[in-house]
């Protein structure tokens, strides 16, 4: 029972890996964010990152289920 999470840019660098997993089978995106803020209290960039569920931008109240792929997307700077 776990949820896969992808980290990019500053978040990937601060946590030290691109992919992590947290225990759980159903929670909101906001709860995922809070879990990571508790796990990595020194990484404040979790606060300002957008989130995506299965490659679509999500709001904090959207529900994440087991098997979903959650991504934290820091402010983008392409182009």
């Amino acid at each position: 029972m776990s949820i896969r999470i992808l980290l990019f840019a500053e978040l990937e660098e601060k946590v030290g890996t691109r992919q992590i997993e947290i225990a759980g089978s159903e929670m909101t995106a906001g709860e995922v964010r809070n879990t990571l803020l508790e796990k990595y209290p020194e990484v404040s960039a979790f606060n300002s990152a957008m989130m995506a569920i299965n490659e679509e931008y999500a709001e904090d109240q959207d529900v994440v289920r087991e098997g979903d792929l959650v991504a934290f997307i820091p402010p983008v700077s392409g182009g």
Binding site: F8, A9, P74, S77, G78
Partner: peptide, 21 residues
């Protein structure tokens, strides 16, 4: 620059930083 998840890291002579918005 608004919606595509791409990030740029600038490397200077004296440091480096992921650029935001």
């Amino acid at each position: 620059k608004e919606i595509v998840p791409i990030w740029k890291k600038e490397h200077w002579e004296d440091g480096e930083e992921w650029m935001g918005d």
